[in-house]
């Protein structure tokens, strides 16, 4: 589904990614771990098409299409979704109408007919149950005045509604207490399927207690220095990133 070859990226004249190689197949969950500043969030942002990336080079193919050439919205319409580490507040636009706009943009791109608010409400209520989001979330302005935990849950609701092929979760676990983490992880697990892939960027092993990854990659100074199965995450927890690097 996703094939990354020798990806480099520069932000503010500083090279952050120094040659990433990664293959992700449908149905897989990949965890990217690494210390602060290792480039793991940058990797997610480069894939989603974030601004302020000065230069991204290398070959990134998403279902055979070169991803780096596409505008952020086209990547989204093709099925890439990023859950933000710091979701943006959009005061004055309610969650339900925002999600309908996004959902309809996708339908339109696929040449399908757009849904009206009533039809969409049914879908939205069903999806919000999957990710255990209370209905009153839907009438509130997008992320406006939400707590950190509520924002993260809202990201997972968006993911449930937009039903992406590839989900990039950028430190979705950060700032969550144990209960919120369990709910968010539960939502993500319910969205796993054999034709979808997830890349989970995280600093801590703790979310991996809830979401079992198929692969774990350790990112250090812009490169993947070690890949393994879920036991690698436990190694990190015990030894720390530095020791793994010293290896």
């Amino acid at each position: 589904m996703l094939s990354i070859k020798d990806l480099t990226a520069t932000i503010a004249d500083k090279q952050i990614l120094k040659g990433i190689n990664l293959e992700v197949k449908a149905g897989e969950v990949h965890a990217i771990m690494g210390p602060n500043g290792s480039g793991k969030s940058t990797l997610a942002k480069v894939l989603a098409g974030a601004p302020h990336i000065q230069e991204a080079k290398g070959e990134v193919l998403f279902e055979g299409k070169p991803l780096l050439d596409m505008a952020p919205e086209d990547r989204a319409l093709a099925g890439v979704f990023m859950a933000f580490q710091y979701p943006v507040e959009v005061p004055g636009v309610n969650n339900a109408s925002f999600l309908r706009m996004a959902y309809n943009a996708r339908l339109k791109a696929a040449g399908k007919e757009e849904v009206d608010p009533l039809e969409f409400d049914e879908l939205l209520i069903e999806k919000s149950k999957i990710v255990e989001i209370p209905e009153h979330f839907l009438d509130r302005a997008v992320n406006h005045g939400f707590s950190g935990g509520e924002k993260k849950r809202n990201e997972i609701l968006q993911m449930a509604v937009l039903d992406p092929k590839l989900a990039l979760l950028d430190e979705t676990d950060s700032g969550l207490d144990v209960d919120a983490l369990r709910i968010v992880a539960g939502g993500i697990n319910r969205l796993r399927s054999k034709d979808k892939a997830i890349i989970l960027v995280t600093h801590y092993q703790r979310i991996l207690d809830y979401i079992q990854p198929d692969f774990v990659h350790i990112l250090f100074d812009g490169r993947i220095i070690k890949s393994g199965d879920k036991s690698l995450a436990l190694e990190v927890e015990e030894q720390g990133f530095e020791n793994i690097k010293a290896g």
Partner: peptide, 13 residues
């Protein structure tokens, strides 16, 4: 730009 990107990343042009 970051705010616009958030909306674009949801498929809005």
């Amino acid at each position: 730009e970051d705010e616009l990107f958030y909306l674009q990343s949801r498929g809005l042009n």
